[in-house]
């Protein structure tokens, strides 16, 4: 057996993208959800006549609510689909658990990044915003997206093993994702309005590091019998 860990992880990642592109289990739902939410919110807030600052506050929260709900709705499939379609056994027998986790994490992170790439410019355009710090916004989206991907991947692996997956996901997600959402919203607001974002981004980075390390430590226990 001479496969490298990286080759295994990228094989899992590539497989998920290839399957997704052919079956469109998640992408279509997520994009539709993002577009609908943003358009409805912009139409509802338009007549109120909110100031640019108020609109930035709303968009910072709205964007992360949208990403959190999209993650909760579409991303548990990362593992639930493997169990439901009975492919999990083949994957368990062929790949190292840590490589499976890395591959799935990459897949979820890339899907979230794609969603952010669609939703963020659309939100900026629909709400007629000026971004004070585009680099800060990129950092907030990257930091929040990685944390959300790592937390969702761990949660998806846990719920895929048991019955009542959706309820369990909601119960476990709340304490894990609320701190992330608070940090991500603060970092996004600072980027949009031009405030000091350094400390928040640092906290976001620490959250990401902790959850990724915890994921790699926990996953073999969750994944294997």
């Amino acid at each position: 057996m001479s496969s490298t860990w990286l080759a295994e992880a990228f094989a899992v990642f590539g497989k998920d993208w290839r399957s997704e592109m052919r079956a469109r289990h998640s992408v279509a739902t997520l994009v539709l959800f993002a577009l609908t939410t943003l358009i409805i919110a912009s139409l509802a807030l338009g007549p109120i006549g909110a100031s640019p600052g108020e609109r930035s506050e709303v968009v910072a929260a709205l964007l992360w609510i949208l990403l959190l709900f999209a993650a909760a709705a579409g991303l548990p499939r990362a593992f639930v689909h493997e169990e439901e379609s009975r492919t999990a056994a083949a994957l368990r027998l062929a790949a190292r658990p840590s490589a499976v986790f890395a591959g799935k994490l990459l897949w979820v992170a890339s899907l979230l990044a794609a969603l952010e790439a669609i939703a963020t410019p659309l939100a900026v355009a629909l709400f007629d915003l000026e971004v004070a710090s585009p680099l800060g916004l990129l950092a907030a989206l990257a930091g929040g997206g990685l944390g959300l991907a790592a937390a969702t991947t761990v949660l998806a692996a846990i719920v895929a093993q048991g019955r009542g997956a959706t309820t369990l996901f909601a119960a476990l997600a709340f304490p894990l994702l609320v701190p992330l959402a608070v940090l991500a919203v603060a970092a996004t607001r600072s980027a949009l309005l031009g405030g000091e974002a350094g400390p928040v981004l640092l906290q976001l980075l620490l959250y990401d590091g902790s959850i990724v390390v915890a994921g790699f430590l926990l996953f073999p226990v969750i994944w294997n019998p």
Partner: peptide
């Protein structure tokens, strides 16, 4: 787990 060859009716591929 990784070295055996395993065949079962409920094992599915992608």
């Amino acid at each position: 787990r990784r070295r055996i060859g395993f065949l079962a009716p409920d094992l599915a591929l992608y």
